[in-house]
Amino acid sequence: MNLLTPDPGLLFWMVLSFAVVFLLLAKFGFPVIVGAINKRKEFIEMSLLSAKQANEKLAKIQEESEQLLADAKAKQKDIIASAMQEKQKILEAAQEEARSSAKQIVDEATAHIAAEKDKALREVRSEVAALAIDIAEKIVGEKMSNTAEQQRTIEKLIDEL
């Protein structure tokens, strides 16, 4: 059978050309292609990973900014509230002070008035006494001695009036 006996000439060429093709392709052909495919696979995986990470980062930043905004709002509210309180306090204090100072002024004025009134009364009284003595002198026609006893008598008389 011709088909089943190996042919040395073809074997020679086969070994030679297969060796050449194998060495050529294994050196310059397949490593480049397979390397590029593997590198691209890695590149795609890395890109996906970094995209995922970027997404996560973005979400985190968004969350943080929202948190920040909420914090700021709360703080603003606090500040406003405390300012209001302060204002109320200051107002109240001012009112209190005004009230007390007004009262003091009124008290002082009252005391003053009372003192003035007393003084005035006393003056009026002594004036009246003097007048009464004068009138009585004139009526009696004699000069009454302006002694202390007489003075006392007059005052007693005035009091009885």
Binding site: S17, V21, L24, L25, G29, F30, V32, I33, G35, A36
Partner: peptide
């Protein structure tokens, strides 16, 4: 066959050399 193979595979390799993996 050897020529066809070498031409095809080496030209593929040349494509990858030129364009890189991106």
């Amino acid at each position: 066959v050897c020529t066809v193979m070498c031409v095809v595979i080496l030209s593929l390799a040349a494509w990858y050399r030129k364009h890189g993996h991106k």
